[in-house]
Design a binder for these strands. Structure first.
Lengths: 157, 157
DNA sequence: GAATATTAGTTGCAGGAACAACTAATGTCA
DNA sequence: TGACATTAGTTGTTCCTGCAACTAATATTC
């Protein structure tokens, strides 16, 4: 493997240091974390990341509509639609159509879905645990506050 | 717009709270930040996110190979290959083939590329600035340290 | 109550990313 | 030297995402 060149950096104008550029670091971190987790879900259970998130949100909030799943997971509605279709086909979810409003239906984990959820959930938790295991209590709190602040700032258009 | 249901959460097993699950929060934040930035680069300059990153790394480290670009930006090599091809076609980059090793070539920003870079760079910086403007000096330092720790942890397989 | 707007959800499609297979050049080692 | 391995980079393919257009149902407004 070739090593990276040393000291061939030229200051011409004012270079943006990509390695320390916050949006890049966030992207890299998220990507590193997610790709590990996604590969595990996929390999062991054949479940994609959005599928897993939908299952997780339905475990927490059963019997909500696809639209509410979108709002809660922030997953785009076409992605939710297709993910829900796959989960229904695999009988991991159930859908109940609303009699009074025929546009609406509510979704929930099936018994099988709950079983799968109960298998995946501890794995998800252990990923998070490992990620923060070196952090002190204070650091974890601080991280959480900082992420919230950044999220708030990022959402202001 | 329909409001989210209140209080229909059932504790059946032990739900994973998606909203506070760190990998999810990182993904959401990164996505929120990146999609804003990417849209700006795309709309104003017709440059994709990987293209911009490649330009930024070449501004910092001129005359490196495509392979070194991969290592430094962590962008997958096929993505780099195609992005570089587009940037070359638009004459934003120059490529010099290595005489002694015909596999290798080194890349650098062209004059035009530098001009574009000089236009985009302040915009990139202002995005970052806005993102962290509400944070104190201490919080910024803390954030940086925490992100490094998480990145290190995430990279251990 | 008819025209229009909005909402829930699906589908078509285009662009991007990941992985593998591939070409071509160079390195290694018997 | 010759077989094999490695490296740089390209291309094919598949999957995923996001936007927009669409259908069907309900709400609104005049």
């Amino acid at each position: 493997m070739s090593t990276l060149s040393q000291n061939n950096m030229k200051k011409h104008r004012k270079p943006l240091k990509l390695e320390s550029f916050l949006p890049y670091r966030l992207s890299l971190l998220s990507n590193t974390v997610s790709s590990n987790i996604a590969a595990t879900y996929q390999d062991k259970f054949g479940i994609s990341m959005p599928e897993w998130r939908i299952m997780a949100i339905l475990a927490e909030y059963p019997d909500i509509s696809a639209d509410e799943v979108c709002q809660r997971t922030r997953i785009e509605k076409s992605v939710v639609s297709r993910a829900v279709a796959r989960l229904l086909a695999r009988h991991l979810l159930g859908r109940t159509f609303d009699e009074s409003d025929k546009r609406r239906s509510s979704l929930c984990l099936s018994e099988t879905g709950l079983t799968v959820y109960d298998e995946v959930m501890p794995i998800a938790e252990s990923f998070e645990k490992k990620l923060i295991e070196k952090l002190t209590k204070e650091e974890r709190l601080s991280l959480s506050i900082l992420l919230d602040k950044l999220q708030n700032e990022a959402e202001i258009k």
